[in-house]
Nucleic acid binder design. Structure first.
Length: 274
DNA sequence: CTTGTGTCCTGTAGGC
DNA sequence: TGCCTACAGGACACAA
C-alpha cells in the first residue's frame, strides 16, 4: 500500500534513472488504466516528450514533461513502477509500459485500481479533483499545530478517519495513521473533538516522526510494495501495530487488537492507547 | 457541510 | 483437492 513514504522512495529512485529520458513509445495493456484523457489523446500527448523532472504530491507521482505537461501516476493499493532493460518483456500485471531512451518503464498493478493521467499545462479535470483538493502533507512545515488543530477540533468523526482524509493529511494511509496514533497513545476511534490540545500536539509530532522515518528507511514492505529495483523497504522493522494484530504490543505486551473504522481495518494497543 | 456506507478490482488466504 | 467467500487497500459516489 504505497503511501507518502513509499511514493517518495519511488520518486527518488526513479529520478536518478529516467530524468532527461524521452518517451518513445507507450503501450497501455488495459483500457481502464488510463484515467484521463482518452487512450488516443493520452498517447499523443506523451509521445516524444522528455521527462524534465519527477515530483510527488501526496501519493501522486508526477513526471513533469516538456511543454509543462504532467504524466501522473496513482498506485492505489498495489501499484508499482519499475525500470527494466529495453530488452525486457512485459510482466504479468503490467498495465501500461513506456519505452524510454534507455529503459522500459512498467506500471504494474495487480488490483487494477491504479490509474495514469496526462495533463496539459493548467488542465484540472474533474476526474483528478482529489489531486487539487489535497491538504498539507504532515512532513511539510505548513502542517503545523494550528493547521492540524483547526482541521480536527470541531469534527466528531473518529480521529483515524480524519488522518486518512487527503484534504487534511495528504499522503497518509492506513499504515502510518495507525502507527502515528499508537505513538501518540490515542485510540483510533476517539472522536476528533475529544482530542485534547496536548494530544493534538503529540499526534502532530508522531505523524511527522513516523513519516520522516519511513522516508528515511525507504518505506514499508508489506504485501505488494517493493522499490524500483525490487528491493524491500525497511520500515516494517519499526511497525508497532500495523500488521501486528494478535501479537504482543512491543511496549506493554498486551495483545494488539484489530477493528474496523469506516471500512478500514485498524490496529491498536488497548493498553497503550486511550 | 459532515458522516457513514458501498463500490471499484482481483489475488490470496482461509474455511469446509 | 477444489470450490467458495471474505478480505485487503485508496479514492470517490452517494445517502442521510
Amino acid at each position: 500500500m504505497p503511501e507518502l513514504p513509499e511514493v517518495e522512495t519511488i520518486r527518488r529512485e526513479l529520478a536518478l534513472k529516467i530524468t532527461g529520458q524521452r518517451i518513445l513509445q507507450c503501450i497501455p495493456q488495459r483500457k481502464d488504466i488510463i484515467g484521463y484523457p482518452g487512450r488516443q489523446r493520452f498517447i499523443e500527448n506523451v509521445l516524444n516528450e522528455k521527462i524534465i523532472r519527477i515530483t510527488r504530491r501526496a501519493k501522486y507521482l508526477i513526471l513533469v514533461l516538456t511543454h509543462k505537461k504532467q504524466l501522473i501516476f496513482h498506485l492505489r493499493l498495489s501499484g508499482s513502477i519499475y525500470t527494466r532493460p529495453l530488452s525486457a518483456h512485459r510482466e504479468r500485471f503490467t498495465r501500461i509500459s513506456f519505452t524510454l531512451d534507455d529503459y522500459l518503464l512498467f506500471f504494474n498493478e495487480p488490483r487494477a485500481l491504479g490509474r495514469v493521467y496526462v495533463l496539459q499545462k493548467n488542465e484540472k479535470p474533474d476526474i483528478l479533483k482529489g489531486l487539487f483538493t489535497l491538504g498539507y502533507e504532515p512532513i511539510s512545515h505548513e502542517f503545523d499545530y494550528s493547521y492540524f488543530r483547526n482541521s480536527i477540533k470541531d469534527r466528531k468523526a473518529p480521529i483515524k478517519s480524519l488522518l486518512l482524509d487527503q484534504r487534511i493529511c495528504a499522503g497518509v494511509g492506513n499504515i502510518y495513521s495507525d502507527e502515528a496514533l499508537f505513538h501518540a497513545h490515542i485510540r483510533p476511534k476517539r472522536r476528533a473533538f475529544r482530542i485534547t490540545r496536548t494530544e493534538t500536539s503529540q499526534l502532530l509530532t508522531a505523524l511527522k516522526k513516523v513519516l520522516n522515518k519511513a522516508v528515511k528507511y525507504a518505506g514499508t514492505s508489506v504485501g505488494d510494495y517493493t522499490r524500483t529495483d525490487g528491493q524491500d523497504g525497511n520500515f516494517q522493522k519499526f511497525l508497532y501495530v500495523y500488521g501486528r494484530e494478535f501479537e504482543p504490543c512491543r511496549i506493554c505486551g498486551e495483545k494488539v487488537k484489530v477493528t474496523k473504522i469506516g471500512n478500514r481495518s485498524t490496529r491498536y494497543c488497548p493498553k497503550c492507547q486511550v
